[in-house]
Amino acid sequence: MRIALITDASLSQINGVVNTLRETCRCLRNAGHEVLLVTPDGTATFACPTYPEIRLAYKPYARVATALRDFEADCIHISTEGPMGLAARRFCLRHGIGFTTAYHTRFPEYLSARSMLPLALTYRWLRWFHGPSKAVMVPTPHVLEALKKRGFRHLVLWGRGVDTERFHPTEQDRSCIKGPLFLYVGRVAVEKNIAAFLNAKLPGSKWIVGDGPLREELQQGYPDAHFLGSKSHEELSAYYNCADVLVFPSHTDTFGLVMLEAMACGVPVAAYPVCGPIDVVADGYSGSLELDLARACMNALRLDRDKIRAHALTYSWERATQQFLQSLYRIEPIKANRWVRSSIA
Rank of each mutant, 00 (worst) to 15 (best):
T24D: 04
E145F: 10
S327N: 15
Y51P: 00
P169H: 08
A135F: 11
H142S: 12
R29P: 00
L144R: 15
C25W: 11
E34W: 12
A9I: 01
D173P: 06
V281F: 05
V258L: 07
A113C: 11
Y51A: 06
K148E: 13
A47R: 15
I6Y: 13
P132D: 06
L325W: 10
F182H: 07
A146P: 00
T45H: 13
D244A: 03
K335R: 15
T80P: 03
R124S: 04
I344P: 00
I344Y: 14
R319G: 05
E109T: 02
L155K: 11
R22E: 10
V156F: 14
I344S: 07
V162G: 02
V245Q: 07
G131L: 05
P268G: 01
E216Q: 14
G212V: 04
E332D: 15
L202S: 03
L111G: 01
G159P: 01
S343E: 08
R187K: 09
G159K: 07
Q172I: 09
E332K: 13
L147N: 01
A113F: 12
H226I: 09
L37R: 11
Q323D: 10
Y58M: 11
E318T: 07
Q13H: 11
G96H: 13
T170C: 12
I6W: 14
E72S: 08
K307P: 00
D211G: 05
E145Y: 12
A200T: 05
A345D: 10
Q322E: 15
V38P: 03
H251L: 12
E332A: 13
A57N: 04
K134E: 12
E109F: 11
F167H: 05
P139Q: 06
R295F: 08
L236G: 01
M259S: 00
W317N: 04
W125K: 01
A243V: 10
R94M: 10
V143P: 02
A62E: 13
L181V: 09
L328W: 11
G161F: 10
A312H: 05
E145L: 09
D70H: 12
G229S: 07
V245T: 06
V185C: 09
T254S: 06
I6T: 09
H233Q: 09
V340Y: 14
C265G: 03
A238R: 14
W317I: 04
T43H: 14
G256M: 02
Y110F: 15
V17G: 00
V247E: 02
R124W: 14
Y329L: 09
E53C: 01
A300G: 02
N241V: 08
L86G: 04
G161I: 05
L37C: 09
R295Q: 11
A270N: 03
I14M: 12
Y103W: 11
E165C: 06
E216V: 07
F71W: 13
T164A: 11
S133N: 02
